Deep mutational scan, measured.
Amino acid sequence: MIVFVRFNSSHGFPVEVDSDTSIFQLKEVVAKRQGVPADQLRVIFAGKELRNDWTVQNCDLDQQSIVHIVQRPWRKGQEMNATGGDDPRNAAGGCEREPQSLTRVDLSSSVLPGDSVGLAVILHTDSRKDSPPAGSPAGRSIYNSFYVYCKGPCQRVQPGKLRVQCSTCRQATLTLTQGPSCWDDVLIPNRMSGECQSPHCPGTSAEFFFKCGAHPTSDKETSVALHLIATNSRNITCITCTDVRSPVLVFQCNSRHVICLDCFHLYCVTRLNDRQFVHDPQLGYSLPCVAGCPNSLIKELHHFRILGEEQYNRYQQYGAEECVLQMGGVLCPRPGCGAGLLPEPDQRKVTCEGGNGLGCGFAFCRECKEAYHEGECSAVFEASGTTTQAYRVDERAAEQARWEAASKETIKKTTKPCPRCHVPVEKNGGCMHMKCPQPQCRLEWCWNCGCEWNRVCMGDHWFDV
């Protein structure tokens, strides 16, 4: 396979590697080409510095992935760790964990309700045991953590790749202090920090972006993250068709209702045909949960890209028209025109101005929308079919299609509260000796007794199943 190397943020060049090629071997190839010592090179990928003893497969490097290699003399205490030698983080029983690669970060837990604080980093599902597709590297999971809308060759929703760059020099040479644990960490600028490894760059702020994971991409090709779309790892039924499908869209209502993408497309087109989208002054033209839940309008309007190009163009047109109407304007009634106009409040005669090729020149009556006339309008008909009709959803289907309910059931079956801080902690095999993952707590306690870890627990039921 081919990976592209950008040395000291210059133009990239291809390097041929195998899945079992080590990072140090990659350094040696680059060092020979650039005429520099291999031990002064640092390989940066997806916000993480890659260790010498890791392989291309370990690092989730795919065909035509772009890695950054910078030349920086080692500072005291760094060289041993980078070589894969006596790194205290690798000691058996050590409590410190390697910062998780962005290629394996899962933010789907952050669609849980606000009262489930902490689960994004504490609760991990076991539903990723799908067998890898044919042709994928051994052991590589097909679980997708992110979804994007690819405006490039795909023109559809695709699995996405999370990447990070330095907000100062805009190069992907920043190593994160810690990985993101929720969508806010990724979507809110300057929320996460790190250290830029580019020479002479003092940058410390992280800037995240997404790429389409279905095809090789260049540095400049980015895609918009659709953070309401998630892999259906909890096997929730769709609120409309009641099938279990994946991926799904999880509405931001209190129940976190789930809808499959085909039904979401149908829901949007139906509402669009009836012009029953909601115009929100802050958000724009949007839709609420299909069950009509309060405070559930979709905030990231790129989710409506699921409509496809033709329907999305209609959505944008109707949204612009609705904006004009909300501002007190009118639409030209001549067939084939429909231009938005903003006449004076007491102006009865409205002319669709033909300047700049935008208007048709038609003069019409503001009251009856017919060709302009003197005197009273002959008839004014009330528009028919403008009443909002509820999208029919079966109550039982709505009850079963809740992301929140599956989460709470998982928590109930696989977790116990920490005796000190009461945060839910998952036990997935292993011994009875637990350690609270909350940095402010870190209590060592017994899963069996529910009390602080002691010699009695150690001698009596340390390794009970």
Rank of each mutant, 00 (worst) to 15 (best):
V3F: 05
R6F: 05
F13C: 04
F13V: 05
V15I: 12
E16G: 06
S19A: 13
Q25E: 15
L26M: 05
V29D: 05
V30P: 00
R33A: 06
R33W: 04
G35V: 03
G35R: 06
V36A: 04
V36C: 06
D39F: 03
R42Y: 04
D53F: 03
C59I: 04
Q64D: 13
I69W: 00
Q71F: 04
W74S: 13
K76R: 14
G77N: 11
A82E: 14
T83N: 11
G84H: 09
N90E: 13
A92G: 05
A92S: 13
G94E: 14
G94P: 07
T103Q: 14
V105Y: 13
D106I: 04
V111R: 11
A120K: 15
D130H: 09
S131E: 14
S131M: 11
P132F: 10
P132G: 12
G135Q: 11
S141P: 07
Y143M: 13
Y143A: 08
N144E: 06
S145A: 13
V148D: 02
K151Q: 13
K151P: 14
G160W: 00
L174D: 00
T177P: 12
D185Y: 01
M192F: 05
S193I: 11
G194H: 04
E195G: 06
P199A: 09
F210G: 02
K211S: 14
C212K: 00
K220G: 13
H227R: 14
H227Y: 13
T231R: 11
N232A: 00
N232E: 01
N232T: 00
D243V: 09
R245S: 10
C253N: 00
I259R: 00
C260W: 00
C263Q: 00
C263P: 01
Y267C: 02
Y267S: 02
V269Q: 05
L272M: 12
Q276Y: 05
Q276K: 09
Q276H: 07
F277I: 05
F277G: 02
G284N: 05
Y285P: 04
S286L: 01
P294C: 07
I298N: 00
I298S: 02
K299D: 08
N313E: 09
Y315G: 00
Y318D: 00
A320D: 15
G328W: 02
V330S: 05
V330G: 03
C332F: 02
A339Y: 15
E344D: 15
K349V: 07
G357K: 14
G357F: 15
C365R: 02
E370C: 05
G375A: 08
F381S: 07
T386I: 14
T386S: 13
T388A: 13
A390Y: 12
E395Q: 13
R396P: 11
A398W: 10
E399G: 10
Q400D: 15
R402T: 10
W403H: 03
E409S: 09
T414M: 09
P417Y: 11
P419C: 03
C421P: 00
C421H: 00
G429M: 10
G430F: 14
M432Y: 05
H433V: 04
M434C: 05
W445L: 03
C446W: 00
C449S: 02
C451F: 15
E452S: 15
E452N: 15
G459R: 15
F463Q: 01
